[in-house]
């Protein structure tokens, strides 16, 4: 499954919203339930699903879902 498609599944579960359709341009402003607290849930869910770990400084630099997908892909490639 493509990373974006997997992220879509994760986001729907984490934010409890089946209508979420992620694109690379999606940001927190586009998802009603995405706040700083649910963000932590999302990060944990992504780490568990892809079996990767994010370093402390990696996440604040992400501008949108596309950046998150790229970061996941980079970590998977290193495995």
């Amino acid at each position: 499954m493509e990373i974006l498609a997997e992220l879509t599944e994760i986001f729907r579960e984490v934010f409890d919203d089946d209508s979420i359709e992620l694109t690379r341009q999606t940001t927190a402003n586009d998802i009603d339930a995405w706040d700083s607290l649910s963000h932590m849930n999302m990060v944990m869910a992504v780490e568990l699903r892809f079996k990767v770990r994010f370093a402390l400084g990696e996440l604040p630099a992400l501008r949108n879902v596309g950046d998150l997908a790229d970061l996941v892909a980079k970590k998977l490639a290193r495995k």
């Binding site: 932590m40 944990m44 869910a45």
Partner: peptide, 12 residues
């Protein structure tokens, strides 16, 4: 960690 995530999502 899976159970922790489950709990967190449930409460959220």
């Amino acid at each position: 960690p899976q159970l922790e995530l489950k709990i967190r999502l449930y409460v959220s």
